[in-house]
Amino acid sequence: MAARIARAGRLPAWRHLALGIFTVAAVVFILAPLVIVILTSFSAQSYAIFPPEGYSLRWYANLAAQTTFYVAALRSLILALVATAASLVIGTMTAYALVRYRPRGHSALKAIFLSPVVLPKMVLGVAVFMLVIKIGFYGSSWNLVLTHTLICVPFVIAIVAASLANFDWSLQEAALDLGSKPLPTFLKVILPQISVSVFISGLLAFVTSFDQVETTMFLMRPGESTLPIEMFLYLQRWQDPTIAALSSVLIVFAIFLLVMTSLVLGRRKITTLQTSAEPQP
């Protein structure tokens, strides 16, 4: 302890100061675009100017009148929930099969299953578009559900497989020896142990699907878009702060998700978050 204090005393303060200033600057960099969006949404002008010359709620009133955004938001929500549920089920089955049974070539199989991550999303979107046009399947909701599930499933496989790798299988052995059926054993013995990983991968899958532009753009019939596409198209035509008002609503939704996450993760260390980064090919 004494040695640590002595060493801390030796450290020149300027380096700590520099690191502190850098951290503050980085936090400003990370939060700047989000804070400015909220500020702009209360602006009285139809163009963004800093500092705003007066405040109003007119962009929220304008947003409330845009029904296309509601319908699009509902469509995005349903699509994201379906894709998340499908990718959680398929991804957990895959991760379980790879880790528990170690079939021949399991590491090659895992690399193949994670490979959709490397594929540029625009390429996947256009490829699926060409296929559905070719076989006359254009406009079906299945196209979107399947492509979104394919994009989300690598997150689930990577994160759940990582948490199953440290799993104590003797618990499952005991349950099976005591006459429990395989599926109830999975739900009652294994699932509670990997619930945090399943939650984090589900959250990432939901966010990824909800925010998909590239893969969805060509697969939706005109006028039936999801929320990020509606916003993207609106931005191409107009630049008024209605989009800032909508963005602020989405930021509040994100904060809600974040609070939920911190409640679920509770007092766990931040190390659980590191595995939540993009699965590596």
Binding site: P33, L34, I36, V207, A244, A254
Partner: peptide, 11 residues
Amino acid sequence: VLVSVVVRSYG
């Protein structure tokens, strides 16, 4: 990560 890329780019 939880905020749409469209929102962040607009920001």
